[in-house]
């Protein structure tokens, strides 16, 4: 489970659960849980209104595309991970 959860900040609102493209998150009352199908796409990180989710740097990239050999960085989270109000540098 690569996504880090700040359980103090979490509002248990389910925004991440319904936005997850791989349906990898479950919410029960005030507890969210990721399962192994998570692909670290970062959608939940961006969607979270509480800023309670983070992707560690190693999950963000840069990665090498196995087919083309091109380097890429995940689109959603900021590279430097700083909260700049939704707009990455």
């Amino acid at each position: 489970m690569p996504v880090e959860i700040d359980r103090v900040l979490c509002l248990s609102c389910g925004a991440c659960v319904g936005s997850c493209p791989t349906e990898s998150i479950t919410l029960v009352d005030t507890w969210i849980e990721f399962d192994d199908s998570c692909i670290s796409c970062g959608v939940c990180v961006t969607v979270c209104p509480a800023a309670a989710l983070r992707l560690p740097e190693k999950e963000i990239g840069p990665f090498k595309d196995p087919k083309t050999g091109e380097e890429f960085v995940r689109e959603y989270p900021c590279k430097d991970g700083t909260p700049k109000g939704g707009v990455c540098e």
Binding site: T46, G85, G86
Partner: peptide, 19 residues
């Protein structure tokens, strides 16, 4: 309410509301 695809990184919604 903010469209998720127009946000980046984390804490975006809170930033706009606080502003």
């Amino acid at each position: 309410g903010v469209q998720a695809s127009l946000l980046n990184g984390y804490g975006g919604v809170k930033y706009y509301l606080d502003k």
